[in-house]
Design a protein around this nucleic acid. Structure first.
Lengths: 144, 144
DNA sequence: GTAGACGTTCCAGCACAGTGGAAGGTCAAG
DNA sequence: CTTGACCTTCCACTGTGCTGGAACGTCTAC
C-alpha cells in the first residue's frame, strides 16, 4: 500500500503521515527498491489508534509513550489511565482559568457600560481597561 | 529614564520592552547621542495599559489596534467593547470545547474501569482508546 | 519519449509572547 | 587603563501539529 492510498483511507494527508513517522508514532514502513514507502494493514489500525488518542486530547508525544509501553511490556492500560487522569486535571485547570478570564471580561463590559468615553484620558489609552493603579476596582468591584 | 529602570518599574524584562517596541505596542522612545533608549513618563502608563489589556486576555496585536484607534480618532471605547465581546464569545467556545474534552476523558476513564487489560489486542495498542470502528461506543455509551 | 501523477528529501513557516545568547558599544568608578 | 554594569543589534529557539514549496526521482499510459 503506497502512502497516498493509506492517507486517503485514514483521512489524513501524506505530509501528516511522514510527520507521524518522524514523530515516532507511526513505525517506519518497508520500502520498495526505488525507495517508496510500502505500508501494511497494521499501519491503518495504528492510524486509527492515533486519531482516537488525539480525539481524547493526548499529544503525539504521549501517544509515542503509549506505543512504546505497549511494545515494551504489553497492554499499556495503566499508563493510559494515568495519562487520562493527568489530562483531566490539566483540563480542569485550563477550564477554571478560562472561566475566570471570561468573568474578568464580563466585569470589564459592565464597567464599560458605566463609563463615558468623554472621560477617557489619553495617557491611559482607554479607561475601560484598568491599569495597575486601579486594578483592585476590578478584582473587588464592590469593596464596601 | 533608561530601559533597565523602566523595566524594573514596570515589572517586565528589557527584552520584553524591546519586543513590545518591535510589536508596535510601545512607541519608539528618544535616543541618547550614543543610541541608548530614553523613556519618558508616558512609557510607564502605556506599559500599565498593556499589562491591564493583557490581563483582560487581549493579544498584543489587539492592543496595537486599540492604541492606533486612540491615536487616530480619540477614545477607543467602542472598539474595546467590540474586542471584549469577541473575546467573550471566543472564551465561551473554548470553554465549551474543553468541557466537552473533559467529558470525553471522563467517559474514557469509566470505560477503562470496565475493561480488562488482558483483553487488550496488540494491534489496537490500547483498547481504552476507541478506534474509528468503535467510536460510537464512546459517542453513545448506552445506545439501547 | 514524454506527459502527468505519483513518490522522495529537506527547509521554512504558522500562531503567541516572549527568552537566550553572541558580538560588540558606552559609561562611571577605581 | 581597566573592570564591570549596562546598553545596542541580530538571530535562533520555545511548544504543537502539521502545511507549503522547492528540487528531484519514479512509475504508468499513450
Amino acid at each position: 500500500m503506497r502512502i497516498g492510498e493509506l492517507a486517503q483511507q485514514a483521512g489524513v494527508t501524506t505530509k501528516a503521515l511522514r510527520f507521524y513517522e518522524r514523530a515516532g508514532v507511526l513505525p517506519e514502513p518497508a520500502r520498495s527498491p526505488s525507495g517508496y514507502r510500502n505500508y501494511d494493514e497494521t499501519a491503518l489500525s495504528r492510524l486509527r489508534f492515533i486519531k482516537g488518542a488525539q480525539a481524547a486530547g493526548l499529544t503525539l508525544a504521549e501517544i509515542v509513550q503509549i506505543v512504546a509501553v505497549r511494545e515494551a511490556q504489553g497492554p499499556p492500560c495503566a499508563h493510559v489511565v494515568a495519562l487520562l487522569d493527568r489530562h483531566a486535571v490539566d483540563l480542569d485547570l485550563r477550564i477554571a482559568g478560562l472561566v475566570s478570564a471570561r468573568d474578568d471580561v464580563e466585569r470589564l463590559r459592565e464597567r464599560a457600560a458605566e463609563l463615558d468615553p468623554a472621560d477617557c484620558a489619553a495617557d491611559g489609552i482607554c479607561h475601560i481597561i484598568p491599569t495597575k493603579a486601579s486594578n483592585d476596582a476590578v478584582a473587588a468591584p464592590e469593596p464596601g
